[in-house]
Nucleic acid binder design. Structure first.
Lengths: 113, 113
DNA sequence: CTCGTAGTACGGTGAATCTCGTACAAGTGG
DNA sequence: CCACTTGTACGAGATTCACCGTACTACGAG
């Protein structure tokens, strides 16, 4: 009963660095990823306050999932998302954390957050 | 006399992490950057063997320059390109090297180079 | 069963991107 | 001056992308 609908994820070996960089190069997706990195658990899509419509939000989460940055599972009506930290660290050591660090530094520098 | 034509570069503070990630997310540009990282000096555009036309090559070098990843100067008929390692390391410590490391690992894993 | 919430699917629009070929500019060497 | 090398400018075509609204599905609560 835990799951009816399944979601397609790339296997670890299928994750490409160009795809990951492309996924992270969009401001909204980078914001999602930063928020996920700051959370202890997985988060439902509805927990994000994004300046775009629901359909666009779905689109961005799909890009992140298909590029291998996040994994998603259904739980009730919600869909929980979490970073694929272990897979990414194995494939590309240090990449995720330096991107997150760079984004944090830039946010601090520009007075955003 | 060293230079007639000048090229527009973003100042260090204008470099955005999204722009850098976007620039690096194209396979051809990533290849250029890896080759630049492996070179001791700056390289002329003509030193790159890329599977695209001359005009497309110009386009990719411009994207890299305008995003702040490389700097370029004219020298005779050639245009020399080099990574902006210092600026990038200051703004985003570790980012460039982890991207290069990730690209190397992936190239090794996929048997390309 | 009905209602509300969470998210998807679909179709469409406008902008950006990658690509090319052709024509041109700038410098070097004969 | 002329030829050659290097790279640019200028369209132009094809693709991708971000975004939206509307209609729909899936699930949980009452």
């Amino acid at each position: 009963m835990t799951n009816a609908r399944a979601l397609a994820h790339p296997a670890r070996e299928e994750i490409r660095v160009e795809g990951v960089l492309h996924a992270l190069s969009d401001p909204i997706r980078l914001r999602i990823v930063r928020q996920l990195a700051g959370a202890a658990d997985e988060l439902a899509c509805s927990r994000f306050e994004l300046p775009v419509s629901k359909s666009t939000t779905t689109h961005h989460f799909r890009v992140l999932r298909e590029s291998g940055v996040i994994q998603q599972i259904y739980r009730g009506t919600a869909k929980l998302s979490g970073l694929r930290t272990e897979d990414l660290d194995t494939l590309f050591p240090g990449l995720l954390s330096s991107v997150l660090g760079a984004a944090d530094l830039q946010a601090k520098r520009l007075g955003e957050d």
